[in-house]
């Protein structure tokens, strides 16, 4: 039982991390139908910028806030300078633009913060909590808690605010949204900024657990993409479920089967889910417009 609990905790922690990254994917996909392959780099930027500011003598909270603002600015710049000018390009062209952006951001981070890896101090200490013979780091609770808050926040935003509804409307039908007077350009900027800020927040939350360096974005981005797809693109709840499914499956497979193929688990799940449910667990069935 203690063993199972330990695997469960590990799975929940990783799952919440993937879910946080997946939410960023979802936000951008919802408004612009672009998969942003630089999403993982936002996570990296958030963590490293905080580390850099801390080293420069800024206290943790302002450093974290500043890092989130900086990353949001990077997200807005990405939309304004790269996505918007190419908005009529093919899906695969947009994919390559965001891949180019991820290479660029990684290159910049390596120049600014170097190639070493860094750790942020845990928010509330490193003493593990003991529950039923298994241990859990307090920072894991932070990650899980903030993920829940963000999901609730996004729900409120999309369901209750005019702006959120404007984003949703844009996602469903851009032309119709424009006709009813929604400023599409602003909605897109907003969703990129928000998504980047979300990524940065994730990066700061997880840095005490996973450490951070200029390369952490790649795999986190891929796993987050996995989680977003498993959940069905464009669904916030789906992203969280997707993240937890991937995280728990990895931990359980490692614990009860073998650790040799742990990093393949996420991708096996993807293939299985997509073969049986081509739009993910919560995705809308696609229909072709002729």
């Amino acid at each position: 039982m203690a063993e199972f609990l330990q695997f469960l905790f590990a799975g929940l922690t990783s799952g919440a991390i993937y879910a946080l990254v997946a939410l960023g994917f979802t936000l951008i996909y919802s408004s612009s139908h672009v998969i942003n392959f630089a999403q993982g780099e936002f996570v990296m930027l958030g963590g490293l910028a905080t580390v850099g500011l801390l080293a420069a003598g800024v206290p943790l909270l302002p450093a974290a806030l500043l890092a989130i603002v900086l990353t949001a600015a990077a997200g807005i710049a990405l939309e304004k300078l790269a996505i918007e000018p190419a908005r009529n390009a093919a899906v695969v062209t947009l994919i390559i633009i965001t891949i180019g952006a991820s290479i660029l951001l990684r290159g910049a981070a390596q120049l600014i913060w170097g190639k070493d890896y860094h750790r942020l101090p845990a928010f509330t200490g490193e003493t593990p909590l003991e529950i039923g013979g298994a241990t859990l780091l307090p920072q894991s609770l932070w990650v899980i808690g903030v993920t829940i808050l963000i999901v609730l926040g996004l729900r409120w935003f999309f369901g209750r605010t005019l702006l959120g509804k404007a984003v949703l409307a844009t996602s469903h039908n851009r032309l119709a949204a424009q006709l009813v007077g929604i400023d599409i350009g602003f909605v897109l900027l907003l969703s990129y900024g928000l998504s980047a800020a979300l990524g940065a927040l994730a990066g700061i939350l997880i840095a005490p657990i996973t450490l951070t360096s200029y390369t952490v974005g790649t795999m986190l981005g891929l796993k987050g993409f996995c989680a977003a797809i498993v959940g069905g693109l464009g669904s916030g709840a789906g992203a969280v479920v997707g993240g937890l499914v991937v995280g728990l499956a990895e931990a359980m497979a490692t614990g009860y089967v073998s650790s040799a193929y742990k990093d393949a688990v996420a991708f096996v799940i993807i293939l299985v889910v997509l073969v049986f449910m081509p739009s993910g667990l919560f995705g809308r069935r696609g229909t072709d417009r002729v």
Binding site: E3, Q6, F7, F9, A10, G11, T13, S14, I17, I206, I209, T210, V216, T218, M219, L220, A251, T254, G255, S259, A260, K262, D263
Partner: peptide, 20 residues
């Protein structure tokens, strides 16, 4: 004999197996 990927974020499952 346990394995992890260099990009993993947590190795407690592997270590738990070794522990037990």
């Amino acid at each position: 004999d346990e394995t992890y990927a260099p990009t993993d974020t947590d190795v407690t499952p592997q270590l738990t197996k070794i522990k037990n």
